[in-house]
Design a protein around this nucleic acid. Sequence first.
DNA 1: TGTATATTGAAAATCACTTTCAATAACGGT
DNA 2: ACCGTTATTGAAAGTGATTTTCAATATACA
Lengths: 129, 129
Amino acid sequence: MKGLKSTRQRDIILDCFLSSDRHFSIEELYLLLRAKHPGIGYATVYRTMKLFAESGIAREIQFGDGQSRYEHLLEGEHHDHLVCTRCGAIVEFENETIEQLQTEVARLHGFTIVSHKLELYGICSSCRS
Amino acid sequence: MKGLKSTRQRDIILDCFLSSDRHFSIEELYLLLRAKHPGIGYATVYRTMKLFAESGIAREIQFGDGQSRYEHLLEGEHHDHLVCTRCGAIVEFENETIEQLQTEVARLHGFTIVSHKLELYGICSSCRS
DNA sequence: TGTATATTGAAAATCACTTTCAATAACGGT
DNA sequence: ACCGTTATTGAAAGTGATTTTCAATATACA
């Protein structure tokens, strides 16, 4: 891993983080970790996830609920999110056409895009029925 | 204004907010206000902007810098943002095709969209040169 | 194995907001 | 204009998420 020491805590956190597809908040991850490994500190989870984000293993996302969440970031993969505002369900999607249009819009305004954030908020089918 | 009492403070804040096209953070707005009107309190600015957002005069936006910002919200108007990560410049844009594609993506996943957030982060032309 | 350096956990600190509460100001009726 | 009711205000205290501090401990490498 990119210049990071391998420590017991980091191994445990990475393991837990990778073993689920959830979009973890630190709080959730911390509680889950504590269940199996009572010794791990709050600050360590924060620090470690931040580190993972910096080294490209994880991506930090915010859905406006006041907490940062982290998701896996696989090589070169990119996706956006659909968020159900009723039950909190999160669906990932990719749309190449939208991405192209974004680049085009940016170009028209003289910007070179580095990254983007697209989130669609709505009601999922099970909440609607 | 929608059931809101007109007070000296609200008039001043609204005036200041509307007199600029900036995407104000509360902090910025507060400091600007203090210059002319030393008596206005921090909490009042927070409360008032939140109120403006609820009554449809302003829209709250977040660019991931940890602070909420507010922009004017004109009747039924909607736009997204290009943000320069170097100088912080913000450009607004609209793209009907992207909006349509979003609705389509949501439909495919069984979602009914209520709102969305699209932000493009990059480097603007003057920062690039 | 020794040692320089990084990491850890607990607690305190910070940051952006929100709430509390007593004082003050608006609004509506008279 | 005056009064009473109710909303709004400012200062300070409180929140909740995240960060920092610091002494103790663990890791990597000579």
